[in-house]
Amino acid sequence: MPQGNDEPARARGVGLVRWDALIVLYAVLAALCSPLTAPAAVAVLIAGAAALVLIARRPPRRVCSHRVSELPVPQRGAVPSRRSLLLWVLLVLLVGCWELIALFWGNDREHPTLSLLLDPILDSYPGRLVGWLGWLAAGRWMVTH
């Protein structure tokens, strides 16, 4: 039974677990920083700088250059169609526009932006911890894809 082939995969797995542990530890510490304080801003900027370095070091992955309609059916799901791209871009832009409408309409209790609506959650440590974990997990996903 050849076991040598498993070594790189095992090493990658250990590396991933270490990254996850580091992310959880960072989130636990960063969530201690209250919003609207310099430490919170620094914590975001440190994570942002780390992601920047990782993104700069990783070359972009090649995507399939075929049109979706030319691919065999099992592979079509791997490449988003132009229409699905447009639908997602449209929805994200609509959320942005709605946020701007709320911002310029009042940005107060009566006209809340998304961040004002999330304030009660992010004001508590557990809520902030979940926010930090989600944000860092999204960053981890971004730099590993």
Binding site: A30, C33, P35, L36, T37, A40, A41, A43, V44, L45, A47, G48, A51, L52, I55, S115, L118, L122, R128, G131, W132, W135, A138, G139, M142
Partner: peptide
Amino acid sequence: WAAWLWIGFHFLAR
């Protein structure tokens, strides 16, 4: 990356 950083800054730091 810029969008992700903005989200973090906007919701977690501001």
